[in-house]
Design a binder for these strands. Structure first.
Lengths: 230, 230
DNA sequence: CCAAAAGTGTTGGGACTACACCCATGA
DNA sequence: TCATGGGTGTAGTCCCAACACTTTTGG
């Protein structure tokens, strides 16, 4: 069993980058228009080959940054897709990641390498290249599952947010309406939100209190066995 | 961006195979003693290279079968480990899987390829080769998380089992005692267990009713939005 | 008859659901 | 002053945790 005598699949990372469009109240995904064959002209998830000297996480972050300019977004490995004929060019195994970014504070550029990158509503995706539709569905399911028992909803919001914004995040991801009073009670009772002195500005109605998520406190509570749950 | 111009990491699968030793009331993992360098003589997770014409799942099942003879055990992709220096021989990316098998009904052979294979208590693992300790810890955490909201505890038991056996599975995996009456109430109220006409045999006390898990019913309930939870 | 595990109900407290009105603000 | 979302409390229900004794069986 010697490492070098075996043929090797090519190895890539693909990223499902979720963004929250707050004005449209919708969840979006960043897609790239393919410039080359195969699937030339089709939409695809951003991705690329893993360099020999970088970790998989680094490869995924590199892709994320190339496409969005973001360096510190939430990112997590999703699943590895390795069907032998998922790529017509040959055996390509892809480690998929998903990322959560706050769409409203970043005008995503067109992509560093001049590929056309656009945000698409998750409810109206065009046909995708390769098995990217499968990857996307896997990511969405994971997001919907994870958002209920881990505090990742915050990752889609700016650092300072109002409770109604947070509630909307959950409603959008879970696809159902939540009761305002119950939601506030629940989320505030966890003691993970810090009320800020500021308030919303420039809204044509009563300005909401702003909060931030207390990551430190969460880490501490978590280590004591606390379980976040919506 | 052409597939063939990039150098490629080697690609392997590694399997964390969990077994339940009912007599010892303990969770075990199958380890292999390495016959070659690097880490010759150390214990490691069973694993091997992915063939060019098989899926990752197939590769993992192949490894599982080679080590245990089991063809239809529960198996699931865990995580992909790709640190550039996780293998001293060069860049090797490993897709890790975990499997659940019923240890008491199979006397696992010594491994088809004459490697020494042994079950080890998860509480008393020897030092492991490569990053296999990390992989193992990831698998254990996943198992502990998943067992609470997916019916995978059954996979560690024979098809026919008593409620006390099932309770023990949960106690072993979660590492805490559960209340007998509450456990029975909860698990029976889900309506996923079918009471069998038989009973335990050859026990020096009152023989327990035997049950089997109704996979069909679970699939149906699941599709209607039902959530398993312990 | 003894040891060992199987089997069985009730109660109190905490959490979740459902639900409607007044408040503050900018236009 | 109006439109828009911000902000608040209660009552009923359900679920969960805690808890101890009787039954069956083989040795």
């Amino acid at each position: 069993m010697y490492v070098y005598k075996y043929p090797r699949p090519a190895l890539t990372v693909d990223c499902v980058i979720f963004g929250l469009s707050e004005n449209e109240n919708a969840l979006k995904v960043l897609l790239i228009e393919r410039a080359d064959e195969p699937f030339k002209g089709m939409w695809a998830l951003p991705g690329g080959f893993v360099n020999m000297e970088e970790t998989l996480d680094q490869a995924a972050r590199r892709e994320l940054e190339e496409e969005t300019g973001l360096k510190n977004a939430f990112i997590e490995q999703l699943y590895t897709f390795g069907d032998p004929d998922r790529d017509p060019r040959g055996r390509v195994v892809s480690v998929a990641y998903y990322a959560l970014v706050n769409l409203s504070q970043h005008s995503i550029s067109a992509g560093s390498d001049a590929r056309r990158a656009e945000w698409h509503l998750v409810t109206q995706l065009p046909p995708l290249a390769f098995d990217h539709h499968l990857i996307f569905c896997t990511a969405l399911k994971r997001l919907q599952g994870k958002v209920r028992y881990q505090p990742i909803g915050f990752e889609l919001l700016p650092e300072k947010f109002a409770l109604s914004q947070l509630q909307r995040v959950y409603e959008i991801i879970l696809g159902k309406e939540l009761d305002k009073r119950n939601f506030r009670k629940k989320i505030l009772s966890m003691g993970l939100l810090v009320e800020l002195p500021e308030r919303q500005k420039g809204v044509p109605h009563r300005a909401a209190k702003l909060y931030r998520f207390d990551k430190e406190k969460y880490r501490q509570l978590e280590s004591e066995g606390f379980m976040f749950e919506i």
